[in-house]
Nucleic acid binder design. Structure first.
Lengths: 147, 147
DNA sequence: TCATATACTATCGTATGCGATTAAATTCAA
DNA sequence: TTGAATTTAATCGCATACGATAGTATATGA
């Protein structure tokens, strides 16, 4: 790295920070009618794939801590999207499951990622370029997690 | 896109969201002795490049709104890093400038991005791979902003 | 078995982000 | 020139993030 690392334009981190915020807020209009947020959508996606998760599965999968996930799940429970039940086997654990309302959202929201991808491609980003980002980000995330 | 878009592992957005949070929190230990946060660091970088900015320059450059920037700057002023002065010429505007304390931080913090980059490279990510991400993210950000 | 360690989740405090609205100063147009 | 439009920034409310700590249940080992 030979350029000046202290310039905003040279910082990878600033780009990631910006890209993440902008793409997340691009989701927001699609979520509006369902009254959910992007992190809540992540939890739903996780549960649509595998229902009845315990908190630690959710925190590991989303790379978030309980101090973020617990209140988030409490809000989702209040909205009737999920249930948070104590495990019979191990009373420390809490099992998170979809309500019928939460399950129904899968069908209703399934086109959202495609809509968004189409928007982005229509605005000039190639599918290939988008797909090139995937393995780079995966390696990046893995590298940082290993620290 | 032929794969199931509703799986967490298939989502570019989730990767960006995760990568941004993880790299930001990798900065945190370096910031600790200066008692600043990552968004505050962004403001400092911007002012080190060009002092005496007005609020709208900061919001445009960082792609953030005043409802984020104003309180952030108020906290930075309280810490003695910056001044927020009304413009004489146009009383709607507020000019943000570095204090001597804020200026001194540039020298003290200049090695942080290199340290972090070194950490990442030492953990297996190539410099080339990091640099490949830059133009992809730039195009991605531009594409979303144009929507 | 029973004290200690570990696992699991929740809570607290503070700093962002952001949609929505408000407030104040300047510009502009009839 | 003066009232409406525009520009600029601040405020409000709510939902994350996250470091630090607390609380409770299970596991473990002497």
């Amino acid at each position: 790295m030979t350029y000046n690392q202290l310039k905003l334009d040279n910082q990878l981190c600033f780009r990631l920070y910006t890209a993440a915020r902008l793409i997340t807020s691009s989701y927001t209009p699609y979520f509006k009618k369902f009254n959910i947020t992007y992190p809540q959508y992540l939890v739903l996606m996780l549960l649509w794939e595998k229902d009845n998760c315990i908190i630690s599965e959710i925190t590991e999968r989303l790379h978030l801590e309980t101090n973020t996930i617990t209140p988030l799940l409490q809000r989702m429970e209040k909205q009737g999207l999920i249930l948070r039940q104590k495990s019979e086997v191990d009373n420390r654990r809490r099992i998170v499951s979809l309500t019928s309302k939460g399950k129904r959202l899968e069908e209703q929201m399934k086109e959202i990622p495609n809509c968004l991808a189409r928007e982005i491609v229509d605005n000039g980003m190639n599918v290939e370029e988008l797909q090139n980002m995937i393995p780079l980000l995966d390696k990046f995330i893995l590298t940082i997690k290993e620290k």
